[in-house]
Design a protein around this nucleic acid. Structure first.
Lengths: 227, 227
DNA sequence: ACCAAGATATGTCCGGGATCATATTATGCC
DNA sequence: GGCATAATATGATCCCGGACATATCTTGGT
């Protein structure tokens, strides 16, 4: 072969990476093939030498973005004492910087709804990565049986993703910050993350943090539904 | 005036309503002006007699969809004993029928991410309705101080919206149903809803951990329309 | 240095969508 | 019934995006 062995692979990877950023920023249909190629320093013509279709790029870019998030969490967990892992992840996830930088953030709040409308093939590829995400978080709920841990992980992720989505809709003002706070508190069960800025409110019923399984014991008649 | 006073108003409203359904189904950019007009039984030409721009229709359609959801919750609450209200709303929200019928469902999981990328004007209009949604749910947390109630409402909504989004990504299989379950349990503090809602996706035993303390039973009657 | 294969660029086709200008149709008042 | 006017339809324009056919450039081996 004339070109260096990895030349095309590198170019391909670069297209995917840059596309994954711009797609998260502008939406699955918010940017065209020509502009995506330009992001990688190329023109639109060579596109079909790399991808069978635009959809194929979408799949690769989505997959890449999801893998990056999951890998980041696993790495963060590996470098952190167990009791702090979940808090660290959640604090990063429900932060203003994540809210304000969708291009480098989780693909689910940014692209999930659009993915749900794409072809089955695309949706399933994405769903598989969502499943991996769930597993990564579930592995933090070590003291619960696998099925319970997965449900807890799902609940935590749902709150995180829904919270980030809501915060982005709200923009950057007070409501948005309150949403981020409320989400963190709900997931972490009012435990104070190491580096909270302010806004640490009164006691709330214990949540479903890494504690025992369901722990519905507290039987709080009213304030229930802490999550 | 030649035409009956409300003729145009009715047409306008019909366009908005039909559009709000199709937009939730196909995304904010997934359907064009011509097809949206066709939905209302018209052709595309008259569009600009009703709306200054496509964006204006989006704003009206989004607003309409959000108002409908909020109004439905308030009505549901008014017709239900206090202890069951939240459970009823959540059970409807995190149901297979809501998941499978985005056109009649909550606009946030369906359109939120796209709205966050629209013009400030559009986003703010949507955010205002999100705020109203939060208030509607917060009014169920009657025994907490207003600020706490709002945070609890935000957390509940985040879990609901994130859960529905995740469930739609997962499709209609077992993972998807597990996500709906996990979300309900998280929001309602592990109480199992008495029965599933109307149309069930795949045949699956809905008998999940129903053992523990029955915090709040939720006798959900049949339901069809979504939230 | 040369050159063939591979990688990228140029240019085009086709379809679709937003917008608007103009034509047609429907309505209710005289 | 006829007419002025409002509501809707027809048709055209302009632009953008995906796909692809073809041309040009780049590179490593000779």
């Amino acid at each position: 072969m004339r070109y260096s062995k990895e030349h095309k692979l590198e170019t391909h990877a670069r297209i995917v990476q840059k596309a994954s950023v711009r797609l998260r920023e502008k939406g699955a249909h918010g940017i065209g093939v020509a502009d995506l190629m330009k992001e990688a320093g190329l023109t639109h013509g060579g596109f079909y030498a790399h991808f069978a279709s635009r959809e194929q790029l979408l799949i690769e870019a989505f997959t890449y973005a999801m893998d990056r998030s999951t890998a980041r969490w696993r790495k963060l967990a590996a470098d952190t004492p167990r009791e702090q892992r979940l808090a660290l992840i959640v604090d990063h996830y429900l932060s203003a910087s994540h809210r304000d930088d969708p291009g480098r953030g989780c693909a689910v709040p940014a692209l999930g709804a659009e993915v749900a409308r794409e072809s089955t093939k695309t949706r399933k590829a994405f769903a598989a990565k969502l499943d991996a995400m769930i597993d990564a978080i579930a592995s933090e709920y070590v003291d619960a049986p696998p099925k319970v841990a997965r449900k807890q992980a799902i609940a935590a992720l749902a709150t995180m993703m829904g919270g980030l989505l809501m915060a982005r809709i709200a923009g950057t003002g007070e409501l948005s910050d309150t949403i981020l706070d409320a989400g963190r508190e709900a997931v972490l069960g009012r435990a104070a993350p190491v580096k909270r800025l302010g806004k640490q409110s009164a006691a709330r019923p214990a949540k479903k943090a890494a504690g025992k399984s369901a722990a519905k014991a507290s039987a709080t008649p009213k304030a229930k539904a802490a999550l």
